[in-house]
């Protein structure tokens, strides 16, 4: 059981990294990016190919994976700069599907639908499967913590404030003299780097990647993490990711106890439970289990106080 929990911990950590990355793009800047899994794939393929075919050291491969994801993030952001809301969502979804189709048909480098197997993991042979997983859990937790603090730093910085401004009203931010396009591109660059990082780590963990892995299902799970945890909030992103993995996995243990259903009905029931959980969260915790905390300026209650406040600040 403990080995299973360790492996699921790694999965939760990788989901959390993706949720944190998504949170910058979607939660803070308000850009609905459904192409998440495409950037995840770019990170995984870049790092996998460089370490597998060219023998690069794993940390360097991961950095290259982040960079490649980030660069493609910038490109996608520049192309879609005029799109907002549903239109952006559709285009980014198309981007992810395009990535998957390209990888499926590309035989020379990416090995087509056969995928890449035997991607090296740090000390995989020396440690054996159980210790390797434990070590990887350590790596993933450390990376998630670092990423968490980076994102938190971003949230409280002037940069984060502008992003939230763009999310709430783009025009006002533009009128205030900010270069909205540049901020959006930067948000994409940072967020997609985190997605690439998660993808690269996932490849080194499981040792196998293939185009089928990068189906929209994963995007939806991470989106679910953010909705459940709380959009625009780093703690919410991590809590949501852990909750989603916990929920996905715990339903396995509940289904066998439901009397009178077959395995096939059980599988369908599991998907139904996940849908119901999402509905419940959206109905009763519309802003997520850990809602975004926005510092409210202390509004003066009387004109006298107001003049006092103004007097102080000048």
């Amino acid at each position: 059981m403990e080995h299973y929990l360790v492996a699921m911990g790694v999965t939760a950590g990788i989901y959390a990294m993706m949720a944190l990355g998504m949170n910058v793009i979607w939660g803070m800047a308000g850009l609905i990016n459904l192409g998440l899994v495409g950037f995840f794939a770019i990170g995984a393929y870049t790092s996998g190919l460089l370490t597998l075919k060219l023998g690069w050291p794993i940390p360097l491969g991961i950095l290259a994976g982040m960079a490649a994801a980030s660069v493609s993030g910038v490109l996608v952001a520049m192309i879609t700069v005029r799109l907002r809301g549903d239109y952006l969502a559709i285009v980014t979804l198309g981007f992810a599907e395009t990535m998957r189709v390209v990888m499926s048909n590309e035989l020379w480098i990416a090995n087509g639908t056969d995928g890449l197997s035997g991607i090296p993991g740090p000390f995989r042979q020396a440690l054996g499967p159980h210790l390797f997983n434990l070590q990887f859990l350590g790596i993933v937790v450390a990376v998630t913590v670092i990423l968490f603090f980076l994102v938190e730093r971003l949230v409280h910085s002037p940069f984060g404030r502008v992003l939230r401004g763009i999310r709430d009203d783009e025009q006002i931010v533009a009128v205030a003299g900010k270069n909205v396009v540049m901020f959006k591109v930067k948000a994409f660059a940072f967020g997609t780097a985190a997605l690439g990082l998660a993808g690269a780590l996932y490849g080194h963990f499981t040792s196998f990647i293939a185009p089928d892995l990068f189906a929209p299902l994963l995007t939806l799970y991470v989106k679910l993490s953010l909705l459940a945890g709380g959009l625009g909030n780093s703690i919410g992103a991590v809590v949501g990711a852990v909750l989603v993995v916990f929920f996905l996995e715990s339903t396995r243990f509940i289904i066998p106890w439901v009397p009178g259903i077959s395995a096939v009905q059980g599988a369908a029931l599991r998907e139904l439970l996940i849908a119901i959980a999402l509905l419940v969260v959206l109905r009763f915790y519309a802003r997520g289990l850990v809602p975004e905390r926005i510092a409210q300026p202390q509004l003066p209650s009387t004109p006298a106080q107001a003049s006092l406040v103004i007097g102080k600040s000048t």
């Binding site: 299973y4 492996a7 196998f208 892995l213 996905l248 996995e249 396995r252």
Partner: peptide, 14 residues
């Protein structure tokens, strides 16, 4: 789905 399948396989094994 390979990602979901790996999680399921780990559960069966561990």
């Amino acid at each position: 789905n390979p990602e979901a399948a790996v999680r399921a396989a780990r559960k069966l094994i561990e």
